[in-house]
Design a protein around this nucleic acid. Sequence first.
DNA 1: AAAGCTAGTCTAAACGTTTCGAAGCTGTCA
DNA 2: TGACAGCTTCGAAACGTTTAGACTAGCTTT
Lengths: 333, 333
Amino acid sequence: MIDVAQAAGVSIATVSAFINGTANVSADLGQRIEKAIREIGYQRNAIARSLKLGTTRTIGLTVADIRNPFFTDVVATIQQVLNAAGYAVMLCCNEEDTVQQDEQIKLLLDRMVDGLIIAPAGEDDIMRRLLTGTRKPVVLIDRVCDGLDVDAIVLDNLKAVSDATNYLINLGHRRIGYISGSPETSTGRDRLAGYRQALEAAGVAFIPDLVREGHFREADGYRAAMQLLTMPDRPTAIFSANNLMVIGAMRAIRDMGLSCPADVSVACMDDFPWADVFNPRLTTVAQPVEAIGEQAATLLLERLEGRAPHHSRRLVLHGNLMIRNSCSPRIPA
Amino acid sequence: MIDVAQAAGVSIATVSAFINGTANVSADLGQRIEKAIREIGYQRNAIARSLKLGTTRTIGLTVADIRNPFFTDVVATIQQVLNAAGYAVMLCCNEEDTVQQDEQIKLLLDRMVDGLIIAPAGEDDIMRRLLTGTRKPVVLIDRVCDGLDVDAIVLDNLKAVSDATNYLINLGHRRIGYISGSPETSTGRDRLAGYRQALEAAGVAFIPDLVREGHFREADGYRAAMQLLTMPDRPTAIFSANNLMVIGAMRAIRDMGLSCPADVSVACMDDFPWADVFNPRLTTVAQPVEAIGEQAATLLLERLEGRAPHHSRRLVLHGNLMIRNSCSPRIPA
DNA sequence: AAAGCTAGTCTAAACGTTTCGAAGCTGTCA
DNA sequence: TGACAGCTTCGAAACGTTTAGACTAGCTTT
């Protein structure tokens, strides 16, 4: 910028004013500056600008697992909305590991991001302290955290799973295996509660043995399904608390020489693009991924631009049961 | 930092020296500084640091389509390696749109990233100028660009597709439909060349009508497959130049009331986690996604740390044909 | 003719770090 | 005792912007 000013024979203040349009600059000088910029190939240093302005027009985004198509879609949408608004996005994924997560939040805060969107891998005190300590706007997606009073956008997980479980019950299933997500996450807990509630509302006994804990990863799903399928009185249906674990479950079914839906019905949370193309076409609860991403970005932008209410907001969206052909009716014994 | 210095009763130079360990600081002062940092909750401002140091420890990453599991995996690996090395990653995806791509590269350069990893959506002069004009290290992945002399890591696409095509030929297929990627990308061109080469080597005529152009998106695959399947003499096998388009193709097959592999065999580039769980279990050419991501990050880190040769490097990796059950033998007429 | 505007331009101080060179102190050696 | 070395600490300049406030020149108003 100094070079440009020199080349154009003006002060750097004038160059700055011209570039930002913050003050009138005469046509004569304007042309000289433009020419100098072109010739020098000048590009403004956003770092220096950020330092002075105290804003980076960059936001931090951490998700537990970007390989999960659900998160991929949400991330893609967020990125698009924020980019269009002139913000850059710093992405971190932590493989469902809270220690990594804390480090990444520190890294992002350190880089002076203007705001954060977080899909928490789990809750811990370091994160709570980090997030309450900063005055930066934060938006939580997918999972919420106790004791963190920030904007959040979540699914009505209880109803989503309860609906799906009901569907299985109505098909005649009574022994429904459940592959659960981490109890450390709100989604893990709420979804399990939905399963239990549907069971109890229908007068079907809740059997703890039919619930196997996983941590949202494919390998967990495989292990959990194997345990369920090798029970002496194996379940006639299995519900998986997310899409990654259902892959493991399908693999387990195949490895056991069973077939879906003939031998065991399967359904899960989270839709994905492949779900209705191959066989069996999987019955899932689809989340409104675009809406989640869009709303998250919007909530954050509103805060950044100071046009958000003082209190924190919580948006609850609803899942959509996509009935396909991975569940078959069963006459209860 | 000024506050910390004041609280500890030392100069900011000493605080800086203590934090960075760039000079000896007596135990006494060290303790006072540590205490002050804890009490104030001081966190170093990386922006100011970057301005002074001329390095941001941030790298920019643009990919054509993050929803494609291939890119997702690569991005995840890159992110992990770079994070471990203390770098943050700014992610941009441009939905295969070169105009957006150019803007994103500008945005990243503007933000003073230390380097760039790019999976180009396509080639254009703006990008070429942007990238040659900067002195920042750049690594290209998946697709290369003519006239851009930078590090790159690519697949031997020609051989990958030629192998897969050969497999189909050996099964007895002669009319093999090909759903092509954008001819504006090196992958689009090289893969088509592989198809053609295999055909010609086997003495099978190359029929232009059997090649339908797509742009790596699902909708393109659907349209292309529909065109192929409604031909009077429809192909007995279809190869798709990527994984997204194959979904469209499978959908088209179903919508036409056909079945795979009984009526038409299907194979494609790019493996994905679901490919071998549902039916048909899809035959694919798997790319070494982890290796690609790891190598890309490594190449960039080497350049950043000045331990790379002066000339540009090009790594060529190899695909792996995963034979499953989506292709069936066919006695040639 | 003096005073008051206005538009255009500039000077200089900040933003929060790093780092060079200087300064102060202690101890050693001639 | 004085010179010198080594260690610790500090003052101040720099990084590339933005911006408040000062200045100038040309008009308009009284």
